[in-house]
Computed example of a mutant assay.
Amino acid sequence: MSTSKTLIASALGAVVALGALASAPAAAADKEKCYGIAQAGKNDCASATGAHSCAGQAKTDKDPGDWKYVAKGSCEKMGGSTAPKK
């Protein structure tokens, strides 16, 4: 590939990546953390209780300290809570 084609391909890749980043905050605004609905190994981030520090590390189904992002307003319909249970 010539230098100009490589430069164009790199610039196009950067534009596509920036577009994906720009849409992420809008998508996050339509979601909320829902505690107590995540299946084992399917949580979205660290446990509220400190049991683990990363996504995908939930050990049990529906642990009240583990959460997943869901559409705003749907958490309680799924049997979860928007605040961790102590």
Rank of each mutant, 00 (worst) to 15 (best):
M1N: 13
T3Q: 14
T3E: 14
T3K: 15
T3C: 10
S4M: 10
K5G: 01
T6A: 14
L7E: 11
I8L: 13
A9Q: 12
A9D: 11
S10Q: 13
S10F: 08
S10Y: 08
S10A: 15
L12M: 14
L12H: 07
L12A: 15
G13L: 13
A14F: 11
A14C: 09
V15I: 12
V15S: 05
V16F: 13
V16G: 04
A17C: 07
L18P: 00
L18A: 01
L18E: 00
L18Y: 07
G19V: 01
A20H: 02
A20P: 05
A20G: 04
L21D: 01
L21C: 05
L21N: 02
S23A: 12
S23K: 10
A24V: 13
A24I: 13
P25A: 02
P25E: 00
A27F: 03
A28F: 06
A28W: 07
A29N: 10
D30L: 04
K31Y: 04
K31S: 04
K31V: 05
E32Y: 08
E32D: 05
K33G: 03
K33E: 07
Y35D: 02
G36L: 07
G36R: 00
I37Y: 04
I37L: 04
I37P: 02
A38C: 03
A38I: 01
A38G: 00
Q39G: 06
A40D: 09
A40M: 08
A40E: 07
G41E: 04
G41T: 10
K42R: 13
K42D: 09
K42W: 07
K42H: 11
N43T: 08
D44F: 11
D44I: 10
D44P: 02
D44G: 03
C45Y: 15
C45L: 13
A46K: 05
S47I: 07
A48F: 04
A48M: 08
A48E: 04
T49K: 13
G50Y: 11
A51W: 01
H52S: 11
S53V: 12
S53Y: 07
S53Q: 14
S53K: 10
S53E: 14
C54G: 15
C54V: 12
A55R: 04
A55L: 11
A55F: 10
G56E: 14
Q57R: 12
Q57K: 14
Q57M: 15
Q57P: 00
K59A: 15
K59I: 09
D63E: 09
D63T: 06
D63L: 08
P64M: 05
P64A: 06
G65S: 05
G65H: 02
D66V: 02
D66N: 09
W67M: 03
K68F: 03
K68A: 02
Y69S: 08
V70D: 04
K72A: 03
K72W: 11
K72L: 09
K72G: 04
G73H: 10
S74C: 08
S74R: 06
C75W: 01
C75N: 01
C75F: 00
C75L: 01
E76W: 05
E76S: 14
M78I: 12
M78Q: 15
M78T: 09
G79D: 08
G79F: 05
G79T: 06
G79R: 05
G80F: 01
G80K: 00
G80P: 02
S81C: 06
T82K: 03
A83R: 06
A83W: 04
A83V: 15
A83C: 00
P84C: 03
K86I: 07
K86Y: 01
K86M: 01
